[in-house]
């Protein structure tokens, strides 16, 4: 992949990469930094890109590697997910969900972000993290179960 092709691809995906990074790292500065580092890494390793992969899969893998390593340095919050139920304000729900996500193990959280931000299929998720499709399914299911429990709202249980 030459430099111009890479720039085009990077431009096309930067927004989506940023959305994943922002939801995982939860602040703009870290998300920008992660996307920039991921793009620089991908740029440096562009010769190793193999066309048998979708470009998106490759970029998501580089980005998830950077984000996961950033999450490693963060200590888990002492009280990850206080239960809040029955509130109807959208903002409150959003805050609750962000907090509840902290209770979800990192790998499942990453898969949830990639799945819901970008609509990546199970197969693509499996390729991004180098895991089996079955593992993807079980991680997503586990993540959602933990979310439902952390949100402490009976409404979620039936879905």
């Amino acid at each position: 992949m030459d430099e111009r092709a890479f720039s085009r691809v990077a431009e096309a995906y930067a927004g989506r990469l940023y959305a994943v990074a922002y939801r995982l790292l939860r602040n703009r500065a870290d998300a920008e930094d992660a996307v920039q580092r991921a793009l620089m890494k991908a740029f440096a390793a562009r010769a190793s890109y193999s066309p048998r992969w979708a470009v998106s899969t490759w970029l998501y893998r580089v980005l998830s590697n950077v984000c996961i390593d950033e999450l490693r340095r963060r200590r888990p919050p002492p009280d990850p997910a206080p239960a809040h139920g029955g509130r109807d304000s959208g903002d409150v729900e959003r805050v609750d969900l962000a907090r509840a996500l902290d209770a979800v193990p990192r790998e499942a959280r990453l898969l949830l972000a990639l799945h819901y931000v970008n609509g990546l299929s199970y197969r693509e998720l499996a390729r991004v993290r180098g895991i089996s499709v079955n593992t993807v399914k079980s991680q997503l299911a586990r993540g959602k179960t933990i979310l439902r429990r952390a949100l402490g709202d009976r409404r979620w249980i039936s879905t």
């Binding site: 927004g15 793009l39 740029f43």
Partner: peptide, 30 residues
Amino acid sequence: MDLDLTLREFFTAAAPPRHALARLFRGLGG
């Protein structure tokens, strides 16, 4: 309410600030 729907809404809400993207590309050649 559907958890899938809420998650989809939650995760798509992060639009990148425009100036941030410009900054991202400035760093690429460095």
